[in-house]
């Protein structure tokens, strides 16, 4: 069960109409290492991990959805008043004929989201190491987005999102340490 708060996790300031930047941000919206992939991956893995780390996966998955909402806000605002011609110039012509001004889960290259981006192996260490890699890849994507964007408002929000990936990565590595502690421990059930 979730409680929804009708505000963004972090304020997003968009002052320009910049469909090209919107297109790049879609990498983190519906891309392989994006927020949707992260949220769905953790939400699904949490059923088959040891009890100790279920809560962590729930919490981080929930936070990723709030990141997804921030990305959606940025993309929407950067494109909402763009003309079809402007969208076409930004490489979003194909997006426009299929989706109009609405958003869709696809990456910067227009490839639609697919569940094959994520995995659930049913092996806690395999799953957690995938999660750590996902966080570092998301961090790197944010770096390249910051480097390609010259919009200070967007870059401020991207910088915030990048720092969150640092913490998520650390938490997942702590989860691995917690599981390593179980090694050879004599237990009476």
């Amino acid at each position: 069960m979730w409680v929804y708060e009708k505000k963004l996790l972090y304020p997003v300031e968009v002052t320009t109409c910049n469909p090209m930047l919107a297109r790049y941000l879609m990498e983190q919206y519906g891309g392989a290492d994006g927020e949707l992939a992260a949220a769905l991956r953790y939400m699904n893995q949490r059923y088959t991990v040891p009890d100790k780390v279920i809560g962590l996966l729930t919490d981080i998955s929930t936070e990723e959805f709030s990141h997804l909402e921030m990305l959606a806000t940025m993309i929407y605002k950067l494109t909402k008043d763009a003309t079809p011609e402007q969208l076409e110039k930004a490489g979003l012509g194909a997006h426009f004929v299929n989706h109009g001004h609405s958003l869709f889960y696809e990456n910067a290259g227009g490839v639609p989201f697919t569940a094959t981006y994520i995995q659930s192996k049913g092996d806690p260490i395999a799953d957690l190491y995938e999660d750590i890699a996902a966080e570092e890849k998301a961090r790197a994507t944010y770096q390249w987005l910051i480097d390609i964007s010259d919009d200070p408002g967007i870059n401020d929000a991207l910088r915030f999102l990048r720092e969150r990936e640092n913490i998520h990565s650390l938490r997942f590595r702590e989860a691995v340490e917690l599981l390593k502690d179980e090694r050879d421990r004599k237990k009476v059930f």
């Binding site: 480097d147 010259d150 915030f160 969150r164 650390l170």
Partner: peptide, 22 residues
């Protein structure tokens, strides 16, 4: 913490295009 994205300064390294990493 809200501005930095972390409750602990220890885990904040920042990133800006002015660094010129890419």
């Amino acid at each position: 913490a809200l501005m930095q994205g972390s409750l602990w300064p220890k885990f904040v390294d920042g990133f800006s295009r002015e660094e010129g990493i890419s």
